[in-house]
């Protein structure tokens, strides 16, 4: 990471999915403060942009979005276009977040690429 400020992860989701993922990461890893949940509950475009702005703050960040389309994604991509050092990943899952919190010493784009790879690897059909 270039400027030394901690890379933050912001989870952007419908309903309470983001909050639940933050809690799960904390329980599993004991790491608090690396992830911030943002829900689109009751939000129009302006309100969701304000929630994103507040969650990201001034530092670099990766936005983890639940679906590859819809209001969470459109607001996140708009935000990334207007701010430097922001990367966006869709299809957030617990596996990618667990990898992310231990590998934040890189630029947002690299952290996003790595997280997407880790999340994808966790999706399997297991033997019965």
């Amino acid at each position: 990471m270039s400027d030394g400020s901690p890379l933050r992860g912001v989870i952007v989701s419908h309903a309470a999915v983001a909050q639940a993922l933050v809690s799960a990461v904390s329980v599993i890893t004991g790491i608090d403060g690396a992830l911030t949940p943002v829900s689109n509950e009751g939000c129009g475009t302006d309100a969701l942009a304000e929630r994103l702005n507040k969650a990201v703050g001034s530092g670099p960040a990766v936005l983890f979005v639940d679906l590859p389309g819809g209001s969470c994604l459109t607001s996140s991509v708009r935000y990334a276009k207007q701010h430097a050092d922001i990367a966006v990943v869709t299809g957030v899952n617990l596996a990618m977040l667990l990898d992310f919190v231990f590998h934040r010493d890189v630029a947002p784009a690299e952290a996003a690429r790595r997280a997407a790879e880790a999340g994808g690897k966790a999706i399997r059909v297991t033997a019965a």
Binding site: G44, T45, G69, G70, T74
Partner: peptide, 11 residues
């Protein structure tokens, strides 16, 4: 709908 295309609409 001010969110235009999103989950409620598509799904």
């Amino acid at each position: 709908d001010d969110r235009l295309i999103h989950g409620q609409v598509v799904v």
